[in-house]
């Protein structure tokens, strides 16, 4: 784990769709570097062969029956939208295609 750079923080901010000015970028770089520095104690551990735990308990096969439940009323759905047109959520133009 090399130290966290300003460029790293700028890159994750872009990925996370958050804008940072120069002052914020410096501050966040310092703060995040500190937290990651604290996480260095994990780096030293030999955890080869240890299975990762993504879930605290081992439930499996939790499924529901394929039975229709009522959807929300459209008026209620769209009432919360910042902008609506033609019964759809309206957003400024989309520049790139979906991956």
């Amino acid at each position: 784990m090399a130290g966290l750079s300003r460029e790293d923080v700028a890159k994750v901010a872009r990925l996370a769709r958050i804008a940072l000015d120069d002052v914020e970028l410096d501050r966040f770089t310092d703060q995040l570097a500190q937290v990651l520095e604290h996480a260095r104690d994990l780096e030293a551990l030999d955890l080869a062969g240890v299975a990762p735990t993504a879930h605290p308990h081992g439930l499996v096969n939790v499924v529901r029956d394929d039975v229709v439940r009522a959807s929300l009323e459209r008026t209620e759905v769209l009432a919360q939208a910042p902008d609506v047109a033609e019964d759809r959520f309206s957003v400024p133009r989309i520049i790139g295609e979906a991956p």
Binding site: R17, I18, A19, Q80, A81, P82, D83, F89, V91, P92, R93, I94, I95, G96
Partner: peptide
């Protein structure tokens, strides 16, 4: 992300609006 509910701060395109 400003699309469906809550705060939206507008922008010229959807990504700028998200940011």
């Amino acid at each position: 992300d400003g699309v469906r509910y809550g705060l939206r701060v507008d922008g010229p395109d959807v990504e700028a609006m998200n940011v």
